[in-house]
Computed example of a mutant assay.
Amino acid sequence: MSDTRTPSQTDPAPYDALLLLSFGGPEGPEDVVPFLENVTRGRGIPRERLTEVGKHYFLFGGVSPINAQNRELLGALRKDFADHGLDLQVYWGNRNWAPYLVDALREIADDGHRRVLVLATSAYAGYSGCRQYRENLADALAQLAAEGRPELTVDKLRHFYNHPGFVGPMTDATLAALAELPAEVRDGARLAFSTHSIPTAMAETSGAPDDPARGTPGGAYVAQHLDVARLIAAAVAERTGVADRPWQLVYQSRSGAPHIPWLEPDICDHLAAERADGAEAVVMVPIGFVSDHMEVKYDLDTEAVAKAAELGLPVARAATVGADPRFAAAVRDLVLERAAVQRGEPVTRCALGALGPSHDRCATACCPNPRAPRPAAAEA
């Protein structure tokens, strides 16, 4: 979209605040186990097990990169909004660590705002990446109501996985990673598009149609990732002149019980299979993640790189979008799009690929809670 807008196109009304909503992460060794207790609350996991799980964080001094990267994104959003005349205050809250979601919403209410847009740092449909955040919002809003604070109306921005401001930076990052490989293997390098593995049952119930009356078809989590992978692979082929470069969607960061089926193949298993198939090199492209947080730094940069070294397979890892100015501009575009929709004005929705722009409001039945139904904010 053009950066030249009429006054009405820089108007966020009826919204008066944007909340950056993320997962959160520890910022010191003493935070690790309490953070993991927040993540796993209600599952009865012993503290000793959490200490074992936390070894990934302890390898990095007990600090997850995610909070620092969210601060960078917060700054990028504020700068982009200011540079383009969008008068909308931006706040930040996390699901599992400070600054907590309920505190951010309390600050928003105390500052006099009443109509809030939410940007969740997850690009795709699915329980953990969408509905669980909306459940968290419902819980936080209920807590504020119990405190007697003014009512907030909260709407979540649509999934942005196929917005040009997400796909473009990921494409450039893939090309940059290819350039890091030795020249003699560059043209033969294959692409592994990586995302968070989830239980197959959860993947099968992810997503909903635009018309909630038609029911929930499911399968959106995988379908959306595949659409992005195709877009990036095609763009890389065009810009490198290497047609038919092999690629595959792979998964990482599995954390569930062994007897429960999760999406496969795992990235490390995939690297072994690629080497056995004669691959010269592999570029890992973390399309499932907005920033280089712990699951990228450990599962890809540590475990997968170590596996590749064991196999004698050259690898490189593409960067995530992070605070790329194009991504900040995409958020601005989504904010103005949603504001125009709420005002009843015509709007052009930016989306690449075969699936088109996603729905504004989630159907009640989409991406169901795998344990038990719970109230969720911003539903159709």
Rank of each mutant, 00 (worst) to 15 (best):
D277F: 05
L231E: 09
A340V: 10
E264T: 14
Y161K: 07
V321N: 10
M294R: 13
P12D: 01
K156W: 04
H56I: 12
N38V: 03
R190F: 00
L263H: 07
M1E: 06
Y57K: 05
R275C: 06
L18G: 06
H163S: 10
G353E: 00
E180H: 14
L271G: 05
N96Q: 08
W262R: 13
T174W: 08
L355M: 03
T51H: 10
R131E: 04
S2N: 09
M202Y: 00
N162M: 05
R95T: 01
V228A: 12
Y15T: 09
N70I: 02
T200I: 11
T195K: 06
A243D: 15
L88N: 11
G218L: 08
L313C: 11
G219E: 02
S64A: 08
R149C: 01
A183C: 08
N94E: 14
A306F: 07
R149H: 10
A354W: 00
Q89Y: 02
R41H: 03
A183W: 05
V282C: 02
D111G: 11
F81M: 14
A340D: 14
E151Q: 08
S64E: 02
L191Y: 02
D244P: 10
M294N: 04
N94W: 10
G207D: 07
G218K: 05
R239E: 03
D31K: 08
T200F: 07
V250T: 14
V347S: 04
Q224F: 01
R114T: 13
K156T: 08
A173S: 13
G215W: 00
P209L: 02
